[in-house]
């Protein structure tokens, strides 16, 4: 055994993630790993990496016909209550997913029409940018909701250092960055845009997040490093 794997074989996060995915942990250990996935994006990413590594093993699962009664029972359990309670999340889900589609556009260049629906038909205007940068683990998904003039940010990974703020900037061509505001702390947050700024947003421009003193840049221009950036795309 090398000293490297001796070091790795403790109860490090990497090993807990691997054991969680492999499925060997006890009920309690699984419970605690699962709640960490929900609140710790770095740990969640380790788990995803192991899911990815081991996923070819899942080919060995055979397909087994499911009795009809299962879907009927499922419909009863799911849709008698879901129909009453799930009215609010539509726009957020829609934008989130359309943004995902945009992010995956390269991988899914060929659009294969799925019968029964047309995604474009009911789509409000919007822009999406996936923000990331080399040497930084900060990732955000930014959505501009044209209907409400709001920018929504989904925090995907990367912590902000203590006593610092993230500030969001719009960069048009090579002009000086325009501050959109301090990014509030949270998983999904939003910033209201002035009508002036709203006019300025269009596809092809860049959103960037810089690290700033608490309260934002004192100069009106970014003073800290860019921790994530990405180009706006129509969705």
């Amino acid at each position: 055994m090398t000293s490297a794997d001796k070091h790795d074989m403790g109860n490090g996060d990497e090993m807990i993630a691997a054991e969680y995915v492999l499925g060997v942990l006890s009920a309690d250990e699984r419970q605690s790993a699962s709640s960490r996935i929900d609140r710790d994006p770095a740990f969640a990413q380790l788990v995803d990496l192991w899911e990815q590594r081991l996923s070819p093993l899942a080919d060995a699962y055979q397909q087994v016909e499911v009795p009809h009664s299962v879907k009927e029972a499922l419909n009863r359990r799911l849709f008698s209550k879901a129909e009453l309670s799930n009215k609010s999340g539509f726009w957020s889900s829609l934008t989130f997913w359309r943004s995902l589609t945009a992010a995956l556009a390269a991988a899914l260049v060929v659009y294969i029409a799925v019968p029964h629906f047309n995604l474009e038909k009911s789509a409000p205007p919007g822009l999406v940018a996936s923000l990331a940068a080399d040497g930084s683990n900060v990732r955000y998904l930014v959505l501009f909701d044209g209907t409400h003039g709001k920018v929504r940010l989904s925090h995907i990974s990367g912590d902000r250092p203590a006593e610092r703020d993230f500030e969001l900037w719009l960069i048009k061509n090579n002009n000086a960055p325009i501050s959109i505001g301090i990014v509030p702390v949270g998983k999904v947050v939003s910033l209201k845009l002035s009508s002036d700024l709203k006019q300025k947003l269009s596809s092809g421009e860049t959103f960037a997040i810089s690290l700033e003193p608490v309260g934002g840049s004192p100069t009106g221009q970014p003073t800290g490093p860019i921790v994530a950036a990405g180009e706006l795309k129509n969705i």
């Binding site: 849709f79 879901a82 799930n86 999340g89 539509f90 889900s93 829609l94 989130f96 997913w97 359309r98 995902l100 589609t101 995956l104 991988a107 899914l108 060929v110 294969i112 799925v114 029964h116 629906f117 995604l119």
Partner: peptide, 17 residues
């Protein structure tokens, strides 16, 4: 890619999907 699109529509509360 079909499955991705179906999950996408499920997130949009599309029962047909």
């Amino acid at each position: 890619s079909d499955i991705t699109k179906l999950i996408l529509r499920v997130a949009m509360r599309d029962r047909v999907a």
